[in-house]
Simulated scan of single mutants.
Amino acid sequence: MPRAKCFDREEALQKAMRAFWARGYEATSIQDLVECMGINRGSLYDTFGDKHQLFLAALDQYTDSSLTRGLALREDGNAALILKDYLYSFMYRTLGDPEKRGCFVTNTAVERSSYDEQCAKKLREYYDNVEKDLAFLIERGQQAGEINNKRPAGELASFFVGVMQGVRVLGKVRPEEAALRPMIEVALETLNSDAKAA
């Protein structure tokens, strides 16, 4: 009769995600994972497969959580103000990280996407979903006259994804509001509508 698991899978996965996020894939050993997850090697392999499969599961957990925050972009209200609040919240999450880990997605893109196609595919899907949420909001704002329509919503969405990743990267080395706020402010100026600026 197989032995019952005596640990919470999601809690263990959360711990693994934090370890990968802090150290990266290559620098995180199986022993590091066993210790931080509080399980033995057999349980790790039985439940998650190998280190790479565990990493992919941790990446999924992170992106799922991040995309859930993106639901705020589909709420009713002034689109320019919703986007402004979303971007500043993003900036303050970056500033509020004492470990200066940056974005797990961005870190993974830099470390693994050039040679790990499974990671690269997950990252492309994630960025596509973020862009879709942003484009939905921006297009709605353009139709309401809250955001200018000088550029297509999809192009602006792609631009804002780039700004957000820039905030995360710069925030790792200059975690100061004075360094990050201008990036958000300048980006938001691209939304100014002739009808009413955000």
Rank of each mutant, 00 (worst) to 15 (best):
I147G: 01
V163D: 05
E185S: 07
S89P: 01
E176I: 07
A16Y: 02
T28S: 12
R69C: 09
W21H: 13
L191E: 05
I39F: 01
E75W: 00
L95E: 07
D60N: 08
C103N: 09
A72G: 05
G42L: 05
R174E: 15
E146M: 07
E117Y: 02
D85H: 14
E139K: 12
M17R: 15
W21N: 02
Y115I: 02
F159S: 06
G42Y: 02
F48W: 09
Q165D: 13
V167Q: 01
E10R: 15
A187E: 07
E99K: 12
E185F: 04
L59V: 00
R181F: 11
D64H: 06
T190P: 00
P182T: 10
Y25E: 08
L95S: 06
D32E: 13
Q31T: 14
T94S: 09
P98H: 08
K84W: 07
A109M: 15
D64A: 12
D116K: 00
L191C: 04
A22M: 08
G77Y: 10
G24Y: 05
D116I: 03
R3C: 04
Y86A: 10
R9I: 13
G102Q: 04
S89N: 12
N78M: 09
A197C: 09
G166N: 06
L134M: 14
S158G: 15
L123H: 05
L123S: 06
E189V: 08
E155D: 15
D133R: 07
A135L: 06
Q118H: 12
C6A: 15
R41Y: 12
Q53A: 11
M17V: 03
G154R: 09
L73P: 00
A135C: 09
N40D: 15
G77M: 04
R3D: 14
R41V: 10
S89Y: 05
D32K: 05
G141M: 01
V130H: 03
A57K: 08
M37P: 03
L87D: 00
E111A: 01
I184V: 15
A22Q: 13
L156F: 00
S114F: 14
E177Y: 11
S193K: 02
K121A: 12
